[in-house]
Design a binder for these strands. Sequence first.
DNA 1: GCAGTATTTAGATGATTACCTTAGCATCTT
DNA 2: AAGATGCTAAGGTAATCATCTAAATACTGC
Lengths: 98, 98
Amino acid sequence: MLDRTFRALADPTRRRILALLRDGDRAAGELASEFPMAFASVSHHLQVLRDADLVLSRRDGQFIIYSLNTTVFQDALQHLMEIGTGAGRRRKGARRDA
Amino acid sequence: MLDRTFRALADPTRRRILALLRDGDRAAGELASEFPMAFASVSHHLQVLRDADLVLSRRDGQFIIYSLNTTVFQDALQHLMEIGTGAGRRRKGARRDA
DNA sequence: GCAGTATTTAGATGATTACCTTAGCATCTT
DNA sequence: AAGATGCTAAGGTAATCATCTAAATACTGC
């Protein structure tokens, strides 16, 4: 579950799509035109993001509008935080730098 | 740069390694014994994590001790936060859910 | 320096991924 | 209903990835 999330985040094109969506919802074609690859390829990336629940899509006439699903980011963030910022407990003898 | 970070985070084995390291530094073999795969495979994962600067390694006698490099997590976290939590500005007309 | 332990590197293989082009489906306009 | 537009699905290919086994390197202790 989290697995698909991080896998989806691993690609720079997809992260860029997410960054674009942060500034507002966008149609698939509108997004695709920002990238130097074929429309179908961007559509594929959108599907990966959709499978990971990182984005939501809805049809608006002949357009399909994508938007961020921020709640899933929260989960990923929380996971990273637990690892990286000591948000979880630490064992007694543990040292992380000498 | 961030690319390698997220790519490294995309694998569940590597995330589990990181979670183990959160509880304290560990030798490579000690980490490897936690996984059902060959030592060499875990060693490979450790190298990926090292290339991503997510972990640091130092030699201690015949052991090689791995530890978290928390600062790189901060970068990744910040990046995710900028995307997911509205840490950045949002355009005027933007709506994310209807 | 030889034997043993700890770990990495090398080379091979099967699975997954990212991209392309082409084909298909849904919707709008006329 | 025909044609145009917006988008996705299918099929193919080359690159990358996760894993394995086997060999190499680094250190310890006799």
